[in-house]
Design a protein around this nucleic acid. Structure first.
Lengths: 267, 267
DNA sequence: TAGTGGTCTAGACCACCTT
DNA sequence: AGGTGGTCTAGACCACTAG
């Protein structure tokens, strides 16, 4: 029967395990009511390898057929798992070339992680001017946001972002120093910081939550943005999560919204 | 051959047409380079029926197999088309029951078309108090937003929305009177107005765009929200589109963000 | 019990890309 | 030419829902 597969169909680095397969784990089998569909198991196994760094961002995954053989499932099941990961922007599929681990490139920054756009909905990544990078102990708030203990070492990066020649955003980024040792110490803070997280610290930002409020500009902020104190600003309070779901960055952005706005799509 | 299908495989209300099928339209055929995949054609055909009101919101679609027979494609191809429509929230699939045309119920309003949440990210649909419903001629701005001509008749609805007992949002809704004749004239404005569009006017809101800015509260607004004039407010400028992609509603919401915030998810 | 969508397989062919 | 993902089919079985 095609449903019956080998015990050792899943091999990781040559050592055999059997998380999928085995006749009694097949779908719909009584006594295994909470069992996940095969494609979900395959998705989880692939995701695990992304988390563990077995396949690094930018590299090509094995072909669908190869993965099918390795996991002991059909190509169609692997396809469904990969399609799910592609829908989460964790892999990128290219016809004729292969399936690749997603990278934090300009496109992703611009279309997925930066929602401020100009008047004609035209998108443009801002330039960044780093104001400071300080190291300290996590406050209660910071600890809560980053799932740390109060007092744990954190780095705080402050920068002004310039859109179309105008200083438009003042941003404070807080990360754990345990996760990002020496971040910013050698003045190596690129504009797209998620690329740095990914390349140097092997931390992949998979998703984020943004909480938006309106706030009046405090004098220090107003000066940086060259506006009047009290001007209404859009505050974006973002928590970014890594592949394994842990919060890895807390970011507070204060945005001037006279020449730009935050664009959201509802479905 | 399985690829060769009957000419008259697509029947709409008994009359036969052949948009899909016919041997020479099959995928990858030279001389037809811009041809869409079958599942995309099937998706478009089903969407057309949703637009035309052949299947009304809440009703059940024919089964996958029936649709497959009707369109002259396999069940798997129909499935792919329906899955795509389900991903756009245009249909809802329920195992064991069938595929249904999506409705604007409370769930959809709350999780897809209302992003203001309370402190613990708890969701709650606001109560609405209608302030006025006036009829007039479209301004240049309104005409541009709704793809009308300047001077076309529009209705303007103004309401205050209450969250947790506190007046939190002042909202102005502008719609074409041609599309929504007599809207609000008999004081029939429910809290979830998209339900009204759908049931009474057979207009389905399929998606929307929101443009967010920070604005200071003008005195009239401040009074309605029981706050100080000049308080920073979150302005949500929304355009809603119907199934066929036409803009059908323009809405401007001014939100107080001390006890609530706008929640966005980034992927 | 019958009908629905959900999962899984196997196999064919296509479009696209690289070599 | 060979490999990759993309499309399409046919058929099996499962889970769920309703009458």
């Amino acid at each position: 029967m095609s449903y019956i597969r080998h015990m050792n169909c899943l091999r990781v680095n040559g050592s055999a395990v059997n998380q999928i397969s085995t006749k009694d784990m097949r779908p719909g089998k009584a006594g295994n009511p909470a069992r996940q569909p095969l494609y979900a198991q395959v998705r989880a196994l692939i995701l695990r390898r992304l988390i563990d760094g077995v396949w690094r961002p930018g590299t090509m995954l094995p072909s669908e057929i190869q993965l099918g053989v390795e996991f002991g499932v059909s190509q169609g099941t692997v396809r469904k798992a990969l399609d799910a990961l592609a829908a989460e922007n964790l892999v990128v599929r290219r016809q004729g070339r292969g399936t690749f681990v997603a990278e934090h490139d300009l496109d992703r920054a611009l279309f997925h992680f930066f929602h401020m756009v100009g008047e004609n909905a035209e998108r443009q990544l801002p330039d960044s001017r780093v104001l400071s990078c300080r190291y300290g102990k996590a406050s209660a708030t910071e600890a809560a946001q980053l799932a740390l203990l109060k007092g744990d070492p954190v780095a705080r990066i402050r920068r002004v972002r310039v859109l179309g020649g105008v200083p438009a955003i003042v941003e404070t980024i807080v990360v754990s120093e345990a996760l990002f040792p020496n971040i910013g110490r050698d003045g190596d803070l690129p504009n797209t910081i998620y690329e740095l997280y990914e390349r140097r610290y092997e931390v992949t930002v998979a998703r984020a939550e943004e909480r938006l409020r309106a706030k009046a500009a405090e004098p220090a902020i107003a000066e940086l943005l060259e506006i009047e104190p009290g001007t209404p600003l859009l505050e974006i309070d973002r928590t970014a999560f890594s592949l394994d779901g842990a919060p890895v960055e807390w970011r507070l952005s204060l945005c001037e919204t006279r020449s730009h706005y935050y664009l959201a799509e509802l479905v």
